[in-house]
Design a protein around this nucleic acid. Structure first.
Lengths: 121, 121
DNA sequence: AGAAATAGTAACTTTTTAGTGACTAGATTA
DNA sequence: TAATCTAGTCACTAAAAAGTTACTATTTCT
């Protein structure tokens, strides 16, 4: 049994990696976007059509943040009408394991969750 | 290479487990609380003192939600002043792996993140 | 000539999440 | 008698995240 006092601030220290990760994959759409890229859905318009209910603004905002975090790469082709292709970087691909585990835990324990109302659409 | 059309709605289907998990561990304080319980910090007041900057309201709200989701257990002792002890359920303990992975990814890739400003306090 | 297509942006509103400060009960201690 | 302790609640405000609508440029197609 650990002495509690020794853990002072540890609560703030350990999950600091969690905070970093959450700031990268958190938000309503980022994981969906990453998953779309994993499925080779890599153009803005196609993503917009495939990810249900996402607005262009949220798609743009999320793509920009993922790019700023080095999770995705954005390649612009000088054509008209414009063509832009997104892809996962190696760092982005490294999120795959985590995303799968989040998904697995959720699927496995879905029925255990007492208050189903807590799960938002 | 997968045919994109086959993946229609898959983007909404696969991460549905993710959504469940996120609704359980998401939010600003839940992982800190789970980690506190993991460290045997199990009383309201002690948690409040150990988790930096959390307000009583957020602590109460988060504890109630974790309880409703079956992640923690709340035991009230009929004493004065009141005593309440929280603990992780088996379901709660099963989150440990995921939390560690989130933490590890964050610690490992912290330096890779191009836009450090994206990481919020 | 007019419509379509792509990949967005700008300004604004709404919704959701988090934070603040005062307050409570009932026994115990100074 | 008054302060202290615990585990909260209540009403309210502030901040963050998400959503809405209208709009853009340039070339090709009809």
């Amino acid at each position: 049994m650990k002495k509690i006092e020794e853990n002072k601030n540890l609560i703030d220290e350990l999950p600091c990696g969690v905070k970093t990760t959450m700031s990268v994959i958190g938000g309503k759409w980022k994981i969906r976007i990453i998953y779309a890229l994993y499925l080779n859905i890599n153009r803005f318009g196609v993503m917009h059509r495939h990810i249900n209910n996402i607005s262009k603004k949220m798609l743009t905002d999320s793509l920009r943040e993922l790019e700023a975090d080095g999770i995705i790469h954005r390649k612009v082709y000088a054509e008209v009408p414009p063509r832009v292709e997104y892809s996962l970087t190696e760092l982005g691909k490294s999120l795959n394991k985590i995303i799968n585990e989040l998904n697995d835990w959720g699927l496995k324990n879905r029925h255990e969750l007492i208050d189903q109302d807590n799960i938002k659409e």
